[in-house]
Each structure stands twice: as structure tokens, then as C-alpha cells.
Design a protein around this nucleic acid. Structure first.
Lengths: 130, 130
DNA sequence: ATAGGTGCAAAGCATTTGCAGCAGC
DNA sequence: GCTGCTGCAAATGCTTTGCACCTAT
């Protein structure tokens, strides 16, 4: 096996940096739009490929919103879930060890293997509730 | 406003019946395939529209699987979650009161209102694990 | 120099929509 | 017979891929 070399390019840096600042879930298309508006010369294809790479590297969380769009966000390395405002997209990371073990136990109880789970909480944040 | 009449047609019956038997999550495309194989003359468009109607009527549960496909299943009325086989679509309904209250508590703690949550567990069922 | 990265255009897919004909009620 | 339903074909919208050029190492 080769050590899979990863090349440092202007575009990948831009995508990664943008995700660092925007501490919110964004779609590839939104991210592309934002980068171009900032004057970053980058193709939509590259945004997709960069995001895929980041997801595989475990640096970025991916989830599918209600509209079927895939959205991305740079998160802490540990496993957690999200409390998302359905109006403004603001996000709060939440952890619930009890939920994790409950899900695993439930799966094991039914003989399921290779288990993963998704859990998102949607609501209206205080700011949007006004 | 009109009372929104719902017409009973061969196609809608077929979709509803198929979901009754298959106590599993199926995509619109799979459902269409199954119906045609059975000799049911029905268009893919109609399958989609029937499913939408059933979801709006609250008779059918909808969720998005790991591949981004929308899958449907006829479920009991009470709130619950699903343990889904990512290979064959077999489903186990699970309830976790602890999870419900945890999610609500977590949301309230951050001032979120009008809260809802989604929770799915994906894995490989014993039968597909062979 | 060379493998990996980039980006345009085109292909893929699941899903939706326009519209003319069909069928419950 | 009115109104909703159907279904083909075409459109949509997000995402991926083919391929020739570019660039970090």
C-alpha cells in the first residue's frame, strides 16, 4: 500500500478554511457560492471532491437535510449529534452517551451488526423564536 | 376551503396494499418494480404521488437512507424509531422513552422550541450477515 | 518528471412537473 | 360531467465522471 499522498493546494486550503470559520452546516453548492464571492477561483467539482476527502479524513461531518441536500460541517473528532435551528441553521453540538449505548444495545439485541446511527434534533432557536 | 376529496383508485390501492404486506422500508423505485412484476399496471410517477399522499395522510413513515434514497413504510401511529437493515430493508420498530426525554431536555436547555427529532439505526440484519 | 489535483462539460440518478387523456364520484 | 388521477416525456437539481491540462512535490 502506498501512504496515499495528499497534496496541499490553494483550493483545498480554501474549502477547509471556509469550514473552519462558518461553524454551521453548509451544502457544497453554498460553500462554492461563498468561496467565489470571496474571490476564490474554484470549481464546483473541486468543492465536492475536497469535501469528500475531508469526510474520509474524518475531519468533517456530513448529513442529509430534509430537502435531500448533503450538508457539511467541521466538527470535533468525537462522536456527537446536532441540535439544528430549522430557520437559521444555527447548530449546537450535543453528546449523549446514554443514547449511543442504547442504540448499540438495541441493535445487538436484534442481532444487527456493523451498526451506525443518525440522530438530529430540529427546532427553533431562541433568536428565531422572537 | 374544500374538504379535499381523496379518490379511491386501483393504483393507490395497489401501493397501499403493497406497503401493508412488505413490512419493510422500500424506495419508490423498488415499490414500482415490485408492483409491475406482480402485473400491476402503474407508472412510476403515480407511485411517487401516491406515496406523497400517504405520507401527508400520516399513514406512512418516510426517511432518507445512507445512500440518499427516500424510503417508505407503513407504520403504527405511535412515535417510534427504526432499526433498518441496509441490505434488505428489514425493519424493527424500537421505542426509547429515555431518548425522547433526553432530546427534549437537550433542546430546552438551549432554548429551542417547537422541537422534533429524527433517529435511525442502520446495520446488517442476521439474515444478511451470512 | 510524475502522480495527484483541477475544472469544464456531459452523464447519472432520484424525484418533480407539464399536459392531455382517463375515471371515480 | 366535473374534478381529481394517471402516466408519458421532459425538466430539475444535486452529485459524479471523463478527460485533457495544470501543479505541488
Amino acid at each position: 500500500m502506498s501512504p496515499a499522498p495528499v497534496r496541499q493546494t490553494r483550493q483545498r486550503t480554501a474549502v477547509s478554511d471556509a469550514l473552519d470559520e462558518l461553524q454551521e452546516f453548509k451544502s457544497a453548492q453554498e460553500l462554492h457560492e461563498i468561496l467565489r464571492r470571496r474571490g476564490n477561483q474554484i470549481g464546483l467539482t473541486t468543492v465536492y471532491r475536497s469535501l469528500q476527502a475531508l469526510v474520509e479524513a474524518g475531519v468533517v461531518d456530513l448529513l442529509v437535510n430534509d430537502d435531500g441536500e448533503t450538508i457539511y460541517r467541521k466538527c470535533g473528532a468525537s462522536h456527537h449529534h446536532h441540535l439544528v435551528c430549522r430557520d437559521c441553521g444555527a447548530t449546537v453540538e450535543v453528546t449523549g452517551p446514554a443514547v449511543e449505548s442504547w442504540a448499540d444495545a438495541m441493535a445487538r439485541e436484534h442481532g444487527f451488526t456493523d451498526v451506525s446511527h443518525t440522530l438530529e434534533i430540529f427546532g427553533q432557536c431562541p433568536r428565531c423564536a422572537q
